[in-house]
């Protein structure tokens, strides 16, 4: 009818997405979920040498309602799991999760009944960060990779489509090992 029909397809929305992504990534407020030794490295990421306030992240808080990034740092015990989920639920959308360290990512060397074998059993994880514990630079690298992801997040129906595509791709991915025999 008017101007919007003359615009190249998708032009307006992608620009809005980019602006929204830029705004979101420029000041991610972390809800620190420090559980073990990884938390020490997470604190070190805020020190003068590494200084994650360069990306507007210095407001690392224990208040989930004011945060949009949960950094799960350390092994999550079965008893801590419902607490972690509650903290996650209290955070406002949009929200992201970094599983920091091998214990949070997959249970790491604690392959036993007391430890949750990866926080992705409880909350959706955006970035897995290996290391035991990862050095602060590794955390900064993970945060930058998350920034990339936030920047390229789509909005509205496009986002729903993106999620569907990702799910489909995950479902169709083949295992690294063939399924012959028990391992």
């Amino acid at each position: 009818m008017g101007l919007e029909e003359k615009l190249p397809s998708g032009f307006l929305l992608t620009t809005v997405e980019q602006v929204a992504g830029w705004a979101r990534k420029s000041s991610v407020w972390p809800a620190t979920f420090g559980l073990a030794c990884c938390a020490i490295e997470m604190m070190a990421a805020g020190d003068p040498r590494h200084d994650f306030s360069r990306w507007g992240m210095e407001r690392a808080s224990a208040t989930p309602r004011q945060a949009d990034l949960m950094i799960v740092a350390g092994r999550v015990s079965q008893k801590m799991a419902p607490v972690l989920r509650q903290i996650y639920d209290q955070m406002t959308e949009p929200k992201w999760v970094i599983a920091m360290g091998v214990c949070a990512s997959s249970g790491g060397m604690f392959n036993n009944y007391a430890v949750v074998q990866g926080v992705d059993h409880i909350v959706p994880v955006d970035i897995y960060l290996p290391g035991c514990p990862p050095r602060p630079e590794m955390l900064l690298d993970a945060i930058l990779k998350l920034h990339d992801k936030i920047q390229n997040t789509k909005l509205g129906p496009q986002r729903r489509k993106q999620i569907q595509e990702l799910e489909e791709a995950k479902r169709r991915r083949l295992p690294l090992l063939g399924q012959q025999g028990a391992i």
Partner: peptide
């Protein structure tokens, strides 16, 4: 080399 972070479990199994 330490920049290993990635967004899926599968991609962090190095072959």
């Amino acid at each position: 080399e330490y920049e290993l972070a990635d967004d899926s479990r599968e991609s962090l199994i190095y072959t």
